[in-house]
Nucleic acid binder design. Structure first.
Ligand SMILES: [Zn+2]
Ligand SMILES: [Zn+2]
Ligand SMILES: [Zn+2]
Ligand SMILES: [Zn+2]
Lengths: 139, 139
DNA sequence: GTGCGCATGAGAATCATTCTCGCATATGCC
DNA sequence: GGCATATGCGAGAATGATTCTCATGCGCAC
């Protein structure tokens, strides 16, 4: 064995950089890329390496503090999210994100997986659309 | 408007390479990466450029003949799929893929999007698990 | 048959992400 | 406090998938 991010039982050492990344995500709305976050931190005068941003994001995801979303271009987006299972409603124009629970989807997933003999089931569901604000702005 | 891949009304010129890519996908089961497909074609003695494989895959996706799925490593997988809307049950061990319809999910998606004022809604849903065969093989 | 224009292929370029490695620093022990 | 050790950091190189460039090939309309 060997966990890449964090060995089981080992403590995570506190870090100004990781706190900075998390703090930045706390005050942002939608999903942001690692590169974006790095740029934003730099603009604030916070000297932090790009590799460190990636390491911090991985650690935060491992700790269940962030949600990851991969866009069609392959770039990963990160967002501060609640720890319980949920899904997202994302505006493809302004990035506005709403967390939603989807009990019918959870039920359907479990049932159809069982019917086909699949075990240890996980699922990804994201809903994309245009929010009311953006729809109005466009006429 | 303007489609990136194919201008509206313009014909797609037939191509041995595109047919080869589609033909290969017809006889394969799960999602395959562009690089995989390129290697397979080369091994068959079919001389085809990597860039051409990417171009063919994009064209086929634009024509609705293929489904795309992006793995956690960012690599895109392509699969020959039925043209109607559906979702996938994918074995994370052997890649076995089953197409499934999800009416409850479609209903839930439409309802929750409407409730939050989102228009022009699309969604991505993929279910991952371990198929019966792989579960048995592991004990 | 000719000519135009899209298609191709080899390699370069791009871009996000990861790795390397020497240095900084927190933590635990004395 | 002071030292030993392991983890975190930063800059730049390396990786790997995807896209771009451009010279050449070839199908199709005439
Ligand atoms: Zn919006
Ligand atoms: Zn769910
Ligand atoms: Zn399987
Ligand atoms: Zn659906």
């Amino acid at each position: 064995m060997s966990a890449p991010g964090q060995a089981e039982g080992a403590a995570r050492r506190p870090s100004r950089q990781r706190d900075a990344v998390l703090g930045l995500l706390e005050e942002l709305d939608g999903f942001r890329s690692a590169q974006d976050l790095h740029t934003l931190l730099r603009e604030r005068g916070d000297t932090v390496g790009l590799a460190t941003v990636y390491r911090a994001l991985q650690a935060l995801v491992d700790d269940g503090l962030l949600d990851v979303l991969r866009g069609p271009d392959g770039e990963a987006g990160y967002r501060r999210c609640s720890p319980s299972h949920h899904h997202h409603l994302v505006c493809r124009s302004c990035g506005l994100t709403v967390e939603v629970a989807a009990p019918p989807v959870e039920r359907w997933t479990a049932r159809v997986a069982a019917e086909h003999g699949f075990a240890d089931v996980r699922h990804d569901l994201e809903v994309f659309g245009t929010c009311r604000g953006c729809a109005a702005r466009r006429g």
